[in-house]
């Protein structure tokens, strides 16, 4: 399977772009068709609502026989995501099935945001907080979502300003 991109990856990519999942955006990198830049919008009625979370997704050589590698790039306060952004999700590990796709994986991650599972934690301190005082944990998650997104907005508006300034003075 060296060299060319497998048909399956091409098809999946086409479909992701043609029929995107609501709240999820996934684009392949210009230089590497196996590397995807993903963003997931925080689902409504969750502490992540209003946030836009960036992720990276990589399809290894063995894909679809091996699971894709996915990681959060945006900081998130969630019991199943650690501070490096690694995700604890069974279908990304031993429960991977080649019949699953990028689409289904991203949907599962979206679902994980709606239903955190502190009993199978990756970030122990977060999970602890979730179990001891759920309300407080949700507050913290909201707080993190707010700061991170504000920073993103500032960043994008600043870069927009910068671009327009550049355009004007050139």
């Amino acid at each position: 399977m060296s060299g060319g991109l497998p048909r399956r990856i091409i098809k999946e990519t086409q479909r992701l772009i043609a029929e995107p999942v609501p709240g999820i955006k996934a684009e392949p990198h210009e230089e590497n068709a196996r590397y995807f830049r993903v963003s997931i919008v925080g689902p409504r009625e969750t502490p992540y609502c209003g946030g836009k979370f960036k992720l990276e997704l990589f399809l290894p050589e063995e894909y679809p026989m091996a699971a894709p590698k996915v990681r959060f790039m945006t900081k998130i306060y969630h019991p199943n995501v650690d501070k490096l952004g690694r995700i604890c999700l069974d279908i990304l590990k031993d429960k991977w099935s080649p019949a699953l796709q990028i689409r289904t994986v991203l949907l599962s991650i979206q679902a994980l945001l709606s239903a955190p599972n502190p009993d199978d934690p990756l970030a122990n301190d977060v999970a602890e907080q979730w179990k001891v005082d759920e309300n407080k944990a949700i507050e913290t998650a909201k707080e993190w979502t707010r700061t991170v997104c504000q920073r993103q907005i500032v960043h994008t508006s600043l870069s927009g300003l910068y671009k327009s300034l550049c355009a004007r003075y050139q």
Binding site: M65, A66, S97, P98, A99
Partner: peptide, 30 residues
């Protein structure tokens, strides 16, 4: 699943992951 995918699936399990007895159907949750 098509014959080719099955073949590749079993080959990967046996040769790369060293799984013999516990190869399950490739369908999700099966």
């Amino acid at each position: 699943f098509c014959h080719r995918c099955w073949k590749e699936y079993i080959t990967t399990k046996v040769m790369d992951e060293q799984v013999g007895e516990h190869i399950s159907c490739p369908a999700h949750k099966c």
